[in-house]
Design a protein around this nucleic acid. Sequence first.
DNA 1: TATTACGTTGACGTAAACGTCAAGATCACT
DNA 2: AGTGATCTTGACGTTTACGTCAACGTAATA
Lengths: 132, 132
Amino acid sequence: MSDPTYSIGELCAEFDVTPRTLRFYEQRELLTPIRDGQRRIFTQRDRARLKLILRGKRFGFSLESIRQWLNLYDLGDGGVTQMTTWVENAKTQMGALRDQRDELEDAMAELQVLIDETEAELSRRAAKRAAE
Amino acid sequence: MSDPTYSIGELCAEFDVTPRTLRFYEQRELLTPIRDGQRRIFTQRDRARLKLILRGKRFGFSLESIRQWLNLYDLGDGGVTQMTTWVENAKTQMGALRDQRDELEDAMAELQVLIDETEAELSRRAAKRAAE
DNA sequence: TATTACGTTGACGTAAACGTCAAGATCACT
DNA sequence: AGTGATCTTGACGTTTACGTCAACGTAATA
């Protein structure tokens, strides 16, 4: 049996997006479904790419940068020169992800301090009220 | 000496944003500069809020959700009920940040695997070439 | 055969987050 | 009094990422 394929509706249901969205991604060359007559047939590759697209979006990346990023994924083969370039780009991307994660953890730490302080104040007030 | 204040140009230079941006944030009630005649005077509070705004943006939050988030920050005082509500909201936000961080780390791990594989392939090819 | 479900291509609309003039005020110099 | 720097308030323009019709095709089903 060959690789499973998906209609536009199936992929939409699975990832909770609208057909408009998938057609838009195709127009922007993020997805490249094949055709059965007029109808789009999405392959495993499209499905995998869609996953990456949606994750990229959650990280706040633009579709255009996600597109470049996907192309970067694709060039896993190619010559030594291409692979070397790929690794460089990938490491740059890793740095960006690391920075974002660090910033996130800073924000989490700050927020935790505020939560702790507020909860401490709350228990002080509770103790005071109990003492009366 | 009292708290330092900033002109719109000063804050723009410091945070690398345009005046239009700060006026826009004021209109959306994310900043509340006071006035010297017509001119805006930004206080320490505005500066602190701007920092949070820009960080929120880097995390992909909308200005509207950042606004609510800032107001949430402000209500560090207020009654016990308000504080309790605040803590609940803050914990929800913490969960969201945690999820995002976890997703980021998953992505980083995946990417690292690809990098490692590609580098391994590169060194295999280098060894092969050296053997000839 | 008619309906229903699912799909197609335009084409125009929209919300967010600013950018980009235009026209004028205010202030420091010269 | 003139020049330049910095600021002001409109008001319209722009990009991104889709939403929302409209009008149509095709395929299974009642």
